[in-house]
Write a protein that binds this DNA or RNA. Structure first.
Lengths: 134, 134
DNA sequence: CTTGACTCCGTATCATGGTACGGAGCGTAT
DNA sequence: ATACGCTCCGTACCATGATACGGAGTCAAG
């Protein structure tokens, strides 16, 4: 239940440097050092909660949130700011719908291109016009 | 029918600097100067074909190709390399399908989150768990 | 025949999201 | 008690896709 930074990185599927990067960006906080009996103190320890946050960050990135926005979402969670959270979610849903439609159109174009280029020789394989009409 | 770089940029919906950037990256070629009667020659002129390429670049980017890959596609078009073009298209279709599925899952999660956070007070608004199960 | 808009080109800078390096310190197993 | 591996931290660097800057040249209108 107490992770070193390397274990946390493993559990979250990221690298150690990424953890530190997220800490600098305010997405993860930096726990107190373990035992302050040396000039610099011991290693920092992480818990299950940090794993949760890390996984949230991964998913939120996939959803298209920027790290900046993810930092805000994490603050909203702490503050229990439902309204703002809902707004961010709604805005992202709209953006996702647009993005999905865009990708589906691109997919259709590529599918057409692929078919056209299938015939060995003869017939067109108009790469430059693949997206005509998009 | 003869564009200056600024007109080309307009027609392609990009900035002048972007055109030059694409030229450096080999996505667009650099036409000969117009009239070589000065120490440096006149301005370069662009045609409808450049507009076509520029639009292709835009669409191909949307489809998720990198500029590197787009440069290759443009070369393939010139070389009429059907097989390779088809391979690139197929690979991209697979990647697009994966991406679309991912975005749809994210959308569903956000939709759930948005609903949960809708109720003013009472009930959960579990931002951190929004993507649980993804 | 000058002014103003545009071009050319090299180089620098930006934003995003990391990844790497290097010199300390610390802690655990042998 | 000493060596090995991990940690800490600052700083530097990377890739991608642009975007900006500055000085010089050019061109067309007034």
């Amino acid at each position: 239940m107490a992770f070193t930074i390397a274990k946390l990185a493993d559990a979250g599927g990221v690298g150690v440097e990424t953890i530190r990067f997220y800490q600098r960006r305010g997405l993860l906080d930096v726990p107190k050092r373990n035992s302050g009996d040396g000039p610099t103190g011991g290693a920092r320890r992480y818990g299950q909660d940090d794993v949760r946050r890390l996984r949230f960050i991964r998913s939120a990135k996939t959803a298209g949130f920027t790290l900046e926005e993810i930092a805000e979402l994490l603050r909203l969670d702490a503050a229990n700011d439902r309204a703002r959270a809902r707004d961010l979610a709604s805005a992202r849903i709209l953006a996702l719908d647009a993005k999905i439609a865009e990708l589906q159109a691109a997919r259709a174009s590529l599918s057409r291109l692929s078919k056209a280029c299938a015939r060995q020789q003869g017939g067109p394989c108009p790469i430059l016009d693949a997206f005509a009409g998009d």
